[in-house]
């Protein structure tokens, strides 16, 4: 096996020469990604920071298939996924959104939400929707959250708080085996206490499942504290990238300083 192949096997995600232009041909034309390249190693927990409009969320949308790329190639675990539709990619990518109501069905009960997630990848025909025998399993899952949800299986998710919903959304996104977990500013809409709780929970789930994780965040503390790789995005490029040792030694101060440099360039 050549070394190139070997390194390819170690990669969970690659962006190869990806281009993305918004509103092409109009006065609002914006070239966000011009020959964008990125490699994410298997088993890594990567934090991504960057100012608004830097391309963080667009990168996630391109990866998950919410937006099409103009040209280039995206692979996950060695497989070219560029042509796959969003719902097809969801089979191996779990995603938790910023909006706590996005990752769950508000009108359905906790039990029904978990049952749907439990059947992910299976057939959805006329089998009984809720398997009573799985009830105990759902309870043990919910107990890990320490939010008392294990006694509320029958209530509608819309009556839960944002933090509870986001914890549930994390549970749902990681219920079935995954190749990649995407966290899209998933603590941004929560109060500081809930954000801490959800972040600790995230760490716990990621370690337990040993899943490659890509976390976009505006919280520099979380970015510095969690994960083994961190990169900063600016105008559709990776401008600052640290791993392992270098990542561990980085402080919020350093990050803030980096951020300010970029902001001054942007005239903010």
């Amino acid at each position: 096996m050549s070394s190139e192949q070997q390194s390819a096997n170690e990669m969970m995600v690659t962006f190869e020469h990806v281009n993305k232009i918004f509103n092409p041909g109009s006065v609002n034309e914006v070239t966000l990604f011009n020959d964008f390249n990125l490699k994410l190693r298997k088993g890594n927990f990567i934090s991504v920071v960057g100012s608004n409009g830097s391309g963080k969320t667009t990168m996630l949308n391109l990866l998950c298939g919410s937006l099409p790329i103009d040209s280039g190639k995206i692979t996950v675990d060695g497989e070219d996924i560029t042509r796959l539709k969003e719902f097809e990619r969801a089979g191996f990518i779990g995603r938790v959104y910023q909006d706590p109501s996005a990752g769950t069905c508000p009108e359905l009960t906790i039990m029904e939400n978990l049952a749907l997630a439990d059947n992910k990848g299976g057939s959805f025909l006329l089998q009984r929707g809720i398997n009573r025998q799985r009830r105990d399993y759902y309870r043990t899952l919910l107990e890990q959250l320490h939010m008392g949800l294990e006694d509320k299986l029958g209530i509608q998710v819309k009556s839960l708080s944002g933090g509870q919903r986001q914890a549930l959304a994390l549970l749902i996104a990681t219920m079935t085996p995954l190749k990649l977990l995407i966290l899209d500013e998933h603590t941004a809409a929560l109060d500081p206490k809930s954000a801490e709780t959800v972040m600790e929970l995230t760490q716990q789930v990621v370690e337990e499942k040993n899943v490659t994780t890509l976390m976009v965040t505006h919280n520099l503390k979380f970015a510095a504290d969690y994960g083994n790789r961190l990169f900063m995005m600016h105008r559709g490029n990776v401008v600052f990238d640290v791993m392992d040792e270098a990542k561990r030694s980085i402080s919020i101060k350093d990050l803030t300083a980096r951020f300010d440099e970029i902001s001054i360039e942007d005239g903010n």
Partner: peptide, 23 residues
């Protein structure tokens, strides 16, 4: 109450959730 019925209710409640479930 079937899986298909549950999924139908999920579509009306949150389409993005259904996409996330690979459907």
């Amino acid at each position: 109450k079937t899986r298909s019925g549950l999924l139908l209710r999920a579509v009306g409640s949150n389409e993005r959730f259904v996409v996330s479930q690979g459907k």
